[in-house]
Computed example of a mutant assay.
Amino acid sequence: MPIISKDDFSYHTNDCPDVGDGMRTTSLPEEVTSIDDLECSCWDKYESLDELD
C-alpha cells in the first residue's frame, strides 16, 4: 500500500525512510503509468507497477 507524503504529495513505499508524515492510500493515481513516474528511490527495488499488485 503506497503512502503519500504530506509535505510534497509524493508517493512512497511502506518502508521508505524518506516519507516522514504521510497518509496511506489504496492505490497510485491514474497519472502514474510506469514505475519511472515515481520520484523517490524507494521504488528502485521494483521493476514495474505489475509487481505492486
Score class of each variant (00 low, 15 high):
1 M>S: 13
1 M>C: 09
1 M>W: 05
1 M>Y: 10
2 P>I: 04
2 P>S: 06
2 P>L: 06
2 P>G: 06
2 P>M: 07
3 I>M: 14
3 I>H: 05
3 I>R: 14
4 I>W: 02
5 S>D: 05
5 S>F: 08
5 S>T: 06
5 S>Q: 06
6 K>H: 04
6 K>A: 10
6 K>L: 15
6 K>Q: 10
6 K>M: 12
7 D>T: 14
7 D>W: 07
8 D>M: 09
8 D>A: 09
8 D>Q: 08
9 F>C: 11
9 F>I: 02
9 F>T: 05
9 F>W: 11
10 S>W: 07
10 S>C: 05
10 S>Q: 14
10 S>L: 14
11 Y>D: 02
12 H>Q: 03
12 H>Y: 14
12 H>T: 04
12 H>E: 02
13 T>H: 10
13 T>Q: 14
13 T>C: 15
13 T>R: 14
14 N>A: 15
14 N>P: 03
14 N>Y: 10
15 D>V: 10
15 D>S: 15
15 D>W: 12
15 D>M: 10
15 D>E: 15
16 C>L: 12
16 C>S: 15
16 C>F: 11
17 P>K: 13
17 P>T: 12
17 P>W: 11
17 P>I: 15
18 D>E: 09
19 V>M: 03
19 V>L: 04
19 V>F: 14
19 V>W: 03
19 V>S: 04
20 G>E: 08
21 D>E: 13
21 D>W: 03
22 G>N: 05
23 M>K: 07
23 M>G: 00
23 M>Q: 10
24 R>E: 15
24 R>I: 12
25 T>D: 01
25 T>G: 00
26 T>W: 09
26 T>L: 12
26 T>R: 11
26 T>N: 14
27 S>K: 15
27 S>I: 05
27 S>C: 13
27 S>Q: 14
27 S>P: 00
28 L>S: 05
28 L>I: 09
29 P>K: 00
29 P>C: 03
29 P>D: 06
29 P>T: 04
30 E>S: 12
30 E>P: 00
31 E>R: 08
31 E>N: 07
32 V>G: 04
32 V>E: 08
33 T>V: 09
33 T>C: 01
33 T>E: 11
33 T>S: 07
33 T>N: 04
33 T>Q: 11
34 S>I: 01
34 S>Q: 02
34 S>K: 08
35 I>D: 03
35 I>N: 03
36 D>S: 13
36 D>I: 00
37 D>S: 04
37 D>F: 06
37 D>P: 02
37 D>R: 02
37 D>I: 03
38 L>A: 08
38 L>N: 07
38 L>V: 07
40 C>I: 03
41 S>H: 10
41 S>N: 12
41 S>A: 14
42 C>E: 11
42 C>K: 08
42 C>D: 09
43 W>Y: 02
43 W>N: 01
43 W>F: 04
44 D>V: 00
44 D>P: 00
44 D>A: 07
45 K>T: 08
45 K>N: 01
45 K>S: 06
45 K>W: 00
45 K>Q: 13
46 Y>F: 15
46 Y>E: 04
47 E>R: 05
47 E>I: 10
47 E>N: 13
47 E>V: 13
48 S>Q: 00
48 S>N: 09
48 S>V: 01
49 L>P: 01
50 D>S: 12
50 D>E: 14
51 E>S: 10
51 E>Y: 08
51 E>T: 09
51 E>P: 09
51 E>G: 12
51 E>N: 08
52 L>F: 09
52 L>V: 09
52 L>P: 06
52 L>E: 05
52 L>D: 06
53 D>N: 11
